[in-house]
Design a protein around this nucleic acid. Sequence first.
RNA 1: GGACUCGUAGCCUAGUGGAUAGGGCAUCUGCCUUCUAAGCAGAGGGUCGCCGGUUCGAAUCCGGCCGGGUCCGCCA
Length: 574
Amino acid sequence: MVDFKKELALSIESALGGKFSVAEIKALIEVPPTPDMGDYALPCFRLCKALKKSPDEVSKDLAENMMLPEGIENLEPKGPYLNFFVGKEILAKDVLKEVLTKKDNFGKSTIARGQRLMVEYSGPNSNKPLHLGHLRNNSLGMAIANIAAANGFDVVKANIINDRGIHICKSMLAYQLFGKGTTPEKQNIKPDHLVGHYYVLYNQKVEKDKKLEEQAYSLLKKWEAKDRQTRALWKKMTGWALAGFKQTYKEFGSKFDVWFYESDFYDKAKPLLALGKKKGVFEKNEDGALVAQLEKHGLPNKTVLRADGTSIYITNDLAVTKHKFKEFKLNESLWVVGSEQDLYFRQLFKIFALLGFSWARNCRHLSHGMVTLPSGKLKSREGKVVDADDIISELEELAENEINKREVLVDEKDKKRRGRAVGLSALKFHMLKVAVQKDILFDPKESISFEGETGPYVQYTYARAKSILRKAGHQGTKSFGFMRLIGPEEQKIIKILETYPATVLKSLEYLSPHIICQYLIELSEAFNSFYHKHKVLQAGSEEIKHERLALVQATAQVIKNGLSLLDIEAIEKM
RNA sequence: GGACUCGUAGCCUAGUGGAUAGGGCAUCUGCCUUCUAAGCAGAGGGUCGCCGGUUCGAAUCCGGCCGGGUCCGCCA
């Protein structure tokens, strides 16, 4: 595609006699608020001082003196702004040809080629099932991984299972005391839910019996001492939890290339701890615990090893991260984790820097807001959560009901498949469309809709477009002379299509999938307006019909490309 | 108490220095013998938390204040 901003900047630069660089001018050029003001505009405020003229004069003089680049048909000074108009036919041809020849690759770039990026997300504790918070995290992790890959990153999607620690021992203890050797099969319950049941039970029982705390702790010591019985129980229960997670991931669409288990790393931090002691980064405090001395660096100190020598979360993270960079030869590592761990990651990364690892500066925490309920924070300990499996199946069912309302005699299997696609898109889009750092208040009764700015709305737009192409028997556009797509509705779509590649780059730059969501909403709105105003199949002439079909095909293509970045399925029929 | 973060119509939300602050939900009015009404067109609804500052220009940057949230564990 022609880079009109660059072409304009070149012309303006030479008209101004080199007083400003092309890059400076290009950065100033923007898109005016409404189409009647043109396609591009130069605000002249920044230029006027050096030129010793008023911005209005600069704009007027430029309008008289500059050469119009090819494709720019007109220009118009309007007060301090200089507005440019791209030829409608040229724009249509330029954009549609690009979309329809690149197809699935439209919007991809190679700016990060050769860079290996690990995206770590999900990170569940193996003592309870996944909940809605995990689903936001998973949606983000997948979208970020897709967006990075679309820009050339060699992405490694990683999951670290927190399968050891005091919290695991709590579920184990409750099961030991009250489980009577039951199994998920005997209870006919999803295995991770059985484990979660005992975690909640522990927290109920410990209210009345504080001795359970000591018992859980002694279980942890036995575990670290590799006590055979304890390990056997642990293996059984984490196996259940993991089997359950994998079912949920499969249903939700979460994918991972690598699985890390904390239990493989809890005792691998010794060399790092020794290094830290040698460098004076870690010091024993009066109780005997090993503490990272961060206060002189503006952060609170952080314990890295308990006084009794057992590991805590950060002990593992030290070892895992070193392993990650070394074994996977990473250029960068990104942790997709909630904002409640902001301080933790600042401490962790600071420790890496103090230990002298060069990769410390390539660690990044993608912090996201929490999901809260009208009654407040999600609390697994009290069982006050929106369970991931429940909410997924609930939405799939709601979507199936919607299909039932609209269609009779649908094939059951097909209905299930479509219901699943629509339900998941409602859920994922809902959590991806807001800026990452914002908290999301989730009201189970009201939050998820299939109308308005939603995933299903975008899917619906796609299905409409595909339906037209089907009915037209459209085989795909082969020739690219578009002289008739000059109406405001058509031009609006074309201009939005044009900005897709820049939108994808922006969402990578800011690590913000919501930019893609906003884009898809805007494109869908433009297409639906066009759809209502103009007929494609019964257009005035065969030429118009063919050109409009190309526009429909290009719109469908870009919606599909955008949705795939969000890990949402574009379906042929709603 | 300190650090971080958020504050935009009744509710949710976009906006990372530029022209008249965009959308969605809810409310109201129209539009299905015409390519899928999960849609479209339109109406009403705004002290962009408050006060200062920087700037030709501030929802956006800076300072202060107010309000919500999170964190400041030898939990994860």
